[in-house]
Amino acid sequence: MGPLAGLQTCLAAVLETDRSGQDVEELLPLLWEAGRINGTVGARIYRNNTKAVRIRALESTFPVCLAILGQDCFRALCRDYLDAFPSRHPDLNFYGGAFADSVAGFLAHHAGAAFTGFDYLPDLLRFEYLHHELHFAADDPPFDTNAFARLLRERADQTVLIPSAALRVFRSPWPVLGLWRAHKDGGSLPDTAGTEDRLVLWRSAHAISVERLSEDAFDLMKQLAEGVCLGDLCGHTAAWALQDFLRRGWISGCRLA
């Protein structure tokens, strides 16, 4: 490792840990200190910056969970995540991809009375992340009805329908949609012991919508997303719903298996 790489590794180590003493001690001999900011202060500024920007990204990704927990509690959960999940990409919009799993782990191992009644939280975080992700999903090309008709005519059984790039399906044992709407828009909270949610989230034009699906329709959409051929779906109990999926723009195209 050359001097430049060594110096960057040393500074990175200072930024990645709160064990402030030892790592900063290793950095200090590398610094020139003649101004108003000494090395310890400078390192603290960068450490605070790099954490604050990631916390802001998480707060922006999960606004409803932030509102439910309050800033102090939400940031306490963030701190665990920041330490365990460094950002791996320049684009911060997707930094929260593993936050729900991190929180689930925290609740399983550390939660005390403060989190009683928040068992639904990881799934609500997963739902919020899917909703957030749809803002950045690609636009679909226009559905090619001629290609679809040709495939149906020639190789219907081997035709695979491609779900929209801006569509996600999500299943939870908790009524996450009701919880999300109640906290986002106001209104009464659902009974968390209520029925499970089977949801489709999609972006049409520039608005994101969420809808509950029946168990059969959800299973059909899930199988479509997994690339199951029409030939294997024709006997599905919700096959009747395919036309509705197409009409609503949930299907973006087709291909041969």
């Binding site: 500074l11 990175a12 930024l15 990645e16 960068y46 790099t50 920007v53 990631r54 460094p86 950002s87």
Partner: peptide, 10 residues
């Protein structure tokens, strides 16, 4: 550095 993005100008 080492695949970790700091989102700050170091």
């Amino acid at each position: 550095c080492h695949g970790h993005n700091f989102h700050d100008l170091l």
